[in-house]
Amino acid sequence: MMKIAHAKAAMTAQGNKNGYVHGLMLLTILLIASSFPVAATITHALPPAVMMFVRFLLAALLFSPFVLVRNGISLPSLRSSINYIVISIPLVVFFWCMFKSLRYTSLLNTGALFTMVPTITAVLAIIINKDTITRIRALGIFIGTLGAVWIVFRGDWQALMNLDLNYGDFVFMIGCLFLGLYNALIKRLYRNEPMELMTFWVLCWGSLWFLVLCWQDMASIDWVGVELNVYAGIAYLSLFTTLTTFFLLQFSIVRIGATKVSAYNFLTPVFVILLGIILGMEQFIPITLPGILLVVSAMLLIQWEKDSKPAQRKQSV
């Protein structure tokens, strides 16, 4: 009885300690949802690798003063550098695939495919982090995927059945696989260093990889002729949907695990709808309400299942 009481007390204390992280994740998903329309608007202005190089480099430069003030001027150890390189690679692949795919497919299709990320993350977490997936968590992932797809297709299953996967869809599917890998690797490779250091060096290595990819295209670009709204879009993506979300995701994954963090991606279609209503670009469609209820239920189910097993916390993601 005493052991059970101590376990419950530890579970409650841990839940209260990390409660604010869930609020941070809601903010993160809001920012991620806003990146899709912004990226679709500017993706044709520059080659994907060039645009992502500018995005990552600007984010790293904006973040560097904060990192220097907090940690001084120092290089990471060889082991930490290897970890940052490994983490940055799947992230680079995902963002390149995202911008590349938006040239050939629609926001609707990418929104539907993005709901695969929580499932992919859960599977890779089992392989990489030796996580276990219970029936309750599997049920939550299934319900969340079902709800997100319902929202994306407005409850029209015929539209889902008629979805023709094109080249852009396949490219984005590859990107989703690598994003799931990124989520799992953060938990695996984190070594208790200040989170801002991990974020900064991942951004730096990401900038380097994109520079290698776009080196031949740089000289042929008329930088003066690029429209101002393109630069504004890149600045927004750099500050809010790159720098801010990277830091918040890495911070949250370390504290509540990759599977729980990734499960918030089920809410992406909900936030897209909310942003559209707020900006006057979309009206609320009642048929989406069942899907909204499903994703919220899935979130609550996954959160409850994990919190109810404190003894497995060290192996959970």
Rank of each mutant, 00 (worst) to 15 (best):
A7Y: 02
A9V: 03
A13P: 04
Q14D: 14
K17Q: 14
L26C: 11
T28E: 15
L30W: 10
A33C: 06
A40S: 13
A45L: 01
L46I: 04
F56G: 10
P65M: 04
L68N: 04
L68A: 12
V69K: 15
N71A: 10
G72C: 08
I73P: 00
L78Y: 08
S80A: 14
I89D: 12
V92E: 04
M98P: 11
T110R: 03
F114P: 07
T115Y: 04
V117H: 04
A122D: 08
L124F: 06
I128E: 08
D131T: 03
T134R: 11
I141W: 02
T145R: 00
L146P: 05
Q158L: 10
L160D: 13
V171T: 04
M173A: 11
I174F: 08
E196R: 00
L197Q: 12
M198S: 14
F210Y: 15
C214W: 09
M218L: 14
A219E: 12
S238M: 09
L243I: 01
L243H: 06
F246W: 09
F246E: 14
L249D: 12
S252F: 01
I253F: 07
V254Q: 15
K260F: 10
Y264K: 10
N265P: 07
L267T: 05
V270Y: 01
V270C: 14
F271L: 13
L275P: 05
G276K: 07
G276A: 09
L289T: 06
P290Y: 05
V295H: 01
L301W: 00
K309A: 13
Q315Y: 09
